[in-house]
Design a protein around this nucleic acid. Structure first.
Length: 449
RNA sequence: GCGGGAGUGGCUUAGUGGUAGAGCGCUUCCUUGCCAUGGAAGAGAUCGCGGGUUCAAAUCCCGUCUCCCGCUCCA
């Protein structure tokens, strides 16, 4: 993890927040490559969940909501906001209503009860005195539940259907850490699947369906099946709203950690918001001519957590070089999947002293830039540039050499095996496109050099 | 919040009382025809921050911040 952290800082994936002021606990900024990687993750999720599912629609709800939402959702009590007491002797903490005067562990004296609220309070309105307290949302899904009727009315959807959202959430974690695995500000990609408890396909079956879908998403993105598991959470450990909960966990260097939660929320949300709000979130089922609360299956990804998993999975290093074994330095290859790699192509003139090569390379770079995230590099030896590109996971290196000036062909080098093919410049864009989309095998895309 | 460990140029780090050195990276130049070339020059660190002890502090002491590991807590 230390190596990943160092790479991320060095090459511009992740910086500690407010570093010139000594940092800020558990906040991180995403640099040029980090923001692109994160964006690629979100775009790919959106593509798979929204674009390719006719029954899933998108939403972008506000972070600030009416505080009554959090009363209804249970976040103002049960688990998210507790009175805790701490033992003066052994410093263990207990819920105030579960202990009396002595520490149940060591019999020591207890400190005064302290209010713990995992929600971040904020004042809404310019005047502090008159301002109302609200909260930064601790999860994005409440924005979905309170808009259930709006979406139903404006899209003419029928059960089952889903609402998807990507956005920031905030929690006052007691102990954040493990790099940016647990932070107080984080981004979620959530999809709430509203389904009927009466239909032939039960919520429990939908749960299994989405669990499979979501697990496959990671496997398709190159996560090794040994490094990911679906962890069934027993009843006593579940969140207050969950009837069933499976955590998709990734095997991080620091241990297994949750990157996505799949929950069967039953009718907890639809019924509680009906009870507390002006509205009735019951669904009128025309076929059965009856009204009932829709059940909700939730898939909830931590964007940064999944990013950390993808980075961990992609990080490879080899001693002695992959081409000849003479190089004793450790070299790093970030084998990010094609969909996620922040930079797809790098264009390199073989040498920079030859003006014609540089000119030609610039021209090719400008053309490719229209289509892909590209870099251009002419510094140092070409071998060194290849390795530097490997380190940030650039998929393909296009090299302009002296043959290019003769016959208008270039070489393409594939990051993962360092093999090269020679292709005509006229077909370059199309070939790269097919390679990145995975439509053709590398060796078949051109003549191996 | 508790216990332990650690903070030295962008990264990795040497330096246990006499005001900082290296490797990589970066800038400029020469060299370089395909996998981290070789060479020359240069920029960049008041040693996390604040205070104390001392003639003198990166080094000792106190405080503080941040990070790491383990508790605790947690979706």
């Amino acid at each position: 993890m230390k190596k990943i952290r160092s790479l991320c800082k060095r090459r511009g994936f992740v910086y500690p927040s407010s570093e010139i002021y000594g940092g800020f606990s558990s906040s991180y900024d995403f640099g040029p490559l980090g923001v692109q990687l994160k964006r690629n993750i979100k775009n790919h999720w959106w593509e798979e969940m929204v674009q390719k599912n006719r029954d899933v629609v998108g939403l972008d709800a506000a972070i600030l909501m009416n505080p009554d939402v959090w009363k209804a959702s249970g976040h103002l009590d049960s688990g998210f906001a507790d009175e805790l007491v701490e033992c003066k002797e052994c410093h263990q903490r207990f819920k105030a209503d579960e202990v009396k005067e002595e520490c149940p562990e060591c019999g020591g004296k207890l400190m005064e009860a302290q209010q713990f609220n995992l929600m971040m309070k904020t004042l809404v309105g310019p005047s502090e005195e008159k301002a109302d307290t609200s909260y930064l949302r601790p999860e994005t899904c409440q924005g979905i539940f309170v808009n259930f009727k709006n979406v139903l009315n404006s899209t003419r959807k029928k059960l089952p259907f889903g609402i998807a959202q990507i956005g920031k959430s905030f929690r006052n974690e007691i102990s954040p850490g493990n790099y940016f695995f647990r932070t107080r500000e984080f981004e979620q990609m959530e999809m709430q699947w509203f389904c009927s408890p009466k239909a032939d396909k039960t919520p429990e079956e939908w749960f299994d369906y989405w669990k499979e879908q979501r697990l496959n998403w990671y496997l398709d993105l190159g996560i090794d099946e040994d490094n990911i598991r679906a962890h069934e959470i027993p009843e006593e450990e579940r969140a207050h709203y969950a009837q069933r909960q499976v955590d998709l966990e990734y095997k991080f260097p620091f241990g297994w950690g949750e990157i996505e939660g799949i929950h069967n929320r039953g009718d907890w949300d639809t019924s509680t918001h009906t009870e507390h709000s002006e509205d009735d979130l019951k669904y009128y089922d025309e076929e059965r001519d009856e009204k009932y609360f829709p059940n909700v299956i939730e898939t909830s990804v931590g964007v940064e957590r999944s990013m950390l998993a993808f980075l961990t999975e992609a990080y490879q290093e080899a001693k002695g070089g992959r081409a000849d074994q003479s190089n004793k330095e450790e070299e790093i290859v970030l084998q990010l999947p094609k969909k996620l790699a922040p930079t797809k192509v790098i264009v390199l003139p073989l040498v920079k002293k030859e003006e014609k090569l540089v000119e030609k390379s610039e021209k090719i770079f400008q053309e490719l830039q229209e289509e892909f995230h590209c870099q251009y590099d002419e510094r140092g030896s070409v071998g060194k540039r290849y390795r530097r590109a490997d380190e940030i996971g650039v998929l393909y290196a296009v090299t302009v050499d002296f043959d290019t000036l003769e016959d208008n062909t270039v070489t393409i080098r594939w990051r993962d095996n360092m093999k090269q093919i020679r292709v005509p410049v006229d077909e370059l864009k199309q070939i790269l496109n097919s390679l990145i989309e995975g439509d053709i095998e590398f060796e078949e895309a051109g003549e191996l050099v």
